[in-house]
């Protein structure tokens, strides 16, 4: 009889412990939701991009000394940390609340020492942008707030970013979180990617949204940089899709209008395999074209060829139009 009673007591005790633990988790929980985003589809280069995030924060427990964190996924060339102005209004604050870029290298809360941009990239990604020139820029509210338990807050975040003159198609992204819980649990933050945003600027289109036959890294460079030309032969059907050796055939155009041709098939022009139908070559344009010291390159036009040089692929997937790359800085 006593054994049976002890067994029942132990069982009830375990069940109580589990119930209490679950209850504690629920009480401590809060949630952040980006309900909607107001944002235009496009602007002209150099104009200020404006977007508004409508956010709801629901709390189940009181949280003290907490800052709002808003991060934006933007092209690096926008230099958003210096060119963005972010503020918010809310149902528990008076007037506009300012936000400031989080200093580079500042560890995110509960992020194992990682800073906000790295942590966001690891947990949330980069919105499917296909080129490497993107970045997360994180901003904290200037003030910290004590937020009561069991309330629903409405927060309206206003984001303004002065864009560069670049001609860009980019998948913008947003993350809203707070400075206590960070990204430690999916209920503590929310992210949104409203689609492809177009900036009608100058120069070649830098298309982060759509796969391309050829991309260039870095996005901005001069002829004294090391430039990586990538070729993805699997994007569309083309005459080099099944070749096992790919070569670069390029023409350099100097700032004074001279042209320098380098179209041969040898070790100096051969691309290196980077996976199935993916290729790349790293060139130092000044050395590649043996440029005299008093000359500068304005742009290059290039094709990819097979080992004979007779089969060419350019920007239209055939040999009719070359790829172009203009040397310029931000």
């Amino acid at each position: 009889m006593r054994k049976s009673l002890n067994y029942i007591k132990r069982k009830i005790s375990w069940q109580l412990t589990i119930v209490c633990a679950i209850t504690a988790l629920v009480i401590a929980a809060c949630s952040i939701t980006i309900d909607s985003i107001d944002q235009s589809d496009s602007i002209n280069g150099g104009e200020t991009m404006q977007s508004t995030l409508h956010v709801t924060i629901s709390t189940n427990a009181e949280e003290d000394n907490s800052r709002l964190m808003v991060a934006v996924l933007v092209p690096k060339v926008w230099n958003a940390r210096n060119n963005a102005s972010i503020s918010f209004t809310s149902s528990i604050t008076d007037g506009t609340q300012k936000m400031t870029a989080v200093p580079v290298g500042t560890a995110a809360p509960q992020g194992n020492g990682l800073d906000w941009p790295t942590l966001i990239n690891n947990k949330i990604g980069h919105g499917g942008n296909l080129l490497p020139g993107w970045e997360w820029a994180a901003f904290y509210s200037d003030n910290a707030y004590n937020v009561g338990g069991n309330i629903n807050l409405s927060v309206t975040v206003n984001i303004k970013i002065k864009t560069s003159q670049d001609n860009i198609s980019f998948k913008l992204g947003y993350v809203v979180a707070e400075s206590v819980d960070g990204l430690s649990n999916s209920q503590y933050y929310n992210s949104a990617f409203p689609g492809c945003f177009r900036v009608f600027g100058t120069g070649d289109l830098i298309d982060f949204c759509n796969p391309q036959l050829s991309t260039v890294d870095p996005l901005n460079s001069l002829d004294n940089d090391i430039v990586t030309l990538n070729f993805d032969g699997g994007i569309i059907d083309n005459a080099l899709a099944n070749q096992s050796n790919i070569f670069l055939c390029a023409k350099g155009i100097t700032t004074d209008g001279d042209t320098l041709n380098l179209c041969r098939q040898d070790s100096t022009t051969q691309l290196i395999s980077q996976g199935i139908k993916k290729w790349s070559i790293d060139i130092w344009p000044r050395g590649f074209f043996n440029l005299p010291a008093d000359k500068q390159l304005a742009s290059i036009q290039y094709y990819f060829t097979d080992a004979t040089g007779n089969v060419k692929v350019g920007s239209t997937g055939d040999g009719s139009t070359p790829f172009t790359y203009t040397f310029k800085c931000q």
Partner: peptide, 9 residues
Amino acid sequence: SPGCSSNSY
């Protein structure tokens, strides 16, 4: 940065 200042080597 031998080229653009945004490119660091």
